[in-house]
Design a protein around this nucleic acid. Structure first.
Lengths: 238, 238
DNA sequence: TCAGGTATTTTGTGATCACAAAATGACACG
DNA sequence: CGTGTCATTTTGTGATCACAAAATACCTGA
């Protein structure tokens, strides 16, 4: 069987992958990684149907592991199974958008607070490096790298909490709004993007709980507030 | 093939099932309903492995739809796939418990508040009926019915919000703590159970936002606070 | 040129098969 | 009687097949 190469296969391998990629569930993990990464960086477009055999051929595996991964992601509301069985990236609606925003504001500042005691100056240094790259992506207009790095920034903080419950919930939220954000960046560009990452880093250095909570909340509000207006504009003209 | 009957098949069909149970994805939906119901009512014990072929035979279907459902539930953290591929109900830990409690307190009062404008006196009447049944279950010690009705009570409120984002998150949380709660009820019984359902109903009748929020939060704290101590006791002696 | 209907292809679903890893059990040896 | 080893069984995984529904393409007729 000819294994076709595609953009999905050359996914950026996250730094600290702990998975040994053993023979057990290797195919499924490969597919899972590819699709998740694709969703978070916006390589899947909302409304675009994703076919089982298509993805399978693209990744050089049988449709079987793809089916399982798609079911998983559908369970996380990252994908939507339509009544006829077709799977697609859900379209964003104003109501959904407001709910995601609310959920993020409820959960993410809280988890950041839980993570704070586990964050060292080494983490702050790492975050600063990531944030520098982010700034560069904003200037150069590299939306895909921006999204990946922004995800890295936030989840480096959240992951430090060692959370097993809140973190997966937030993971689900990001998978839901990321594909939509990508379409907005394609519309308005990245130059108008602003974040509160530096405030967050400073709060971590000072181990200031309230400051970190505020920085994360403000970062979410800034990022999604801007885009909320854009969404309504899109809704009006579509 | 002999279709063996089991406790799983006679799952209590929830009142307002909108699914037409057509031929499309019928098997998967049947399995999903059975396993979800089983988790929420505590018919699956934490730590107990659930085998693919076993469940398939029990439900009279091939292992295929079972695989997909198990993957879905694993994605919602309702089940745990161990490194060797075995699937089991996750064990509860003190850390997990604290996180679930925190997440519930963050999300559920908020969603109840969102739902309040959509809740009518008809809903209050329905909730009152459910709550009466709950009281009876507590007195009679019917833990399984209690858990099912308590879920019905809460989600009747939450579902009225029309939420597409917060509701699935809360769904995931309930699937995570329900099996553990069942084991605790088996240990301490149901007589000591207390809830704030009547306060919540009254808040709905009065359309009092703050009162409803407080009632839900108090209900969660009451229910899980008691059990938290029990968990620690179990941890100590195991 | 365009609408309507049919035929072809594509798609998801469920079942079965082959295989390797893991769990389980039996059994011989100390 | 306990313990280590080996054979058997069970389990999850991935692939392939058969089938029905849906989507798409095509073509005919006005």
């Amino acid at each position: 069987m000819a294994v076709r190469r595609s953009a999905l296969q050359s996914g950026p391998s996250k730094g600290g992958d702990t998975a040994p990629t053993s023979t057990r569930g290797a195919a499924r993990e490969q597919v899972d990684r590819a699709v998740r990464s694709g969703l978070l960086t916006g390589r899947f477009i909302p409304g675009k149907a994703v076919t089982l055999r298509g993805l399978a051929a693209e990744l050089g595996v049988s449709p079987m592991p793809v089916r399982e991964v798609l079911q998983r992601l559908a369970a996380e509301n990252a994908l939507e199974v339509k009544p006829n069985g077709r799977v697609q990236v859900p379209d964003m609606t104003p109501a959904r958008y407001q709910e995601v925003l609310k959920a993020r504001l409820l959960l993410e500042p809280e988890l950041a607070t839980l993570a704070l005691p586990h964050l060292t100056s080494k983490d702050a240094k790492r975050l600063k490096a990531v944030d520098d790259d982010i700034d560069q992506c904003i200037l150069s207009g590299d939306a895909e790298s921006y999204m990946r790095l922004n995800h890295t920034f936030h989840f480096h903080i959240y992951r430090a909490s060692g959370s097993e419950v809140l973190l997966p919930l937030i993971d689900s939220l990001w998978l839901q709004f990321a594909p939509f954000m990508r379409t907005v960046y394609g519309r308005v560009g990245t130059v108008s993007l602003d974040d509160r990452h530096k405030e967050a880093i400073r709060a971590i250095e000072l181990q200031n709980e309230d400051a970190l909570r505020s920085a994360i909340a403000a970062d979410i509000n800034d990022g999604m507030g801007l885009l909320g207006k854009e969404l309504l504009a899109v809704q009006g003209k579509t």
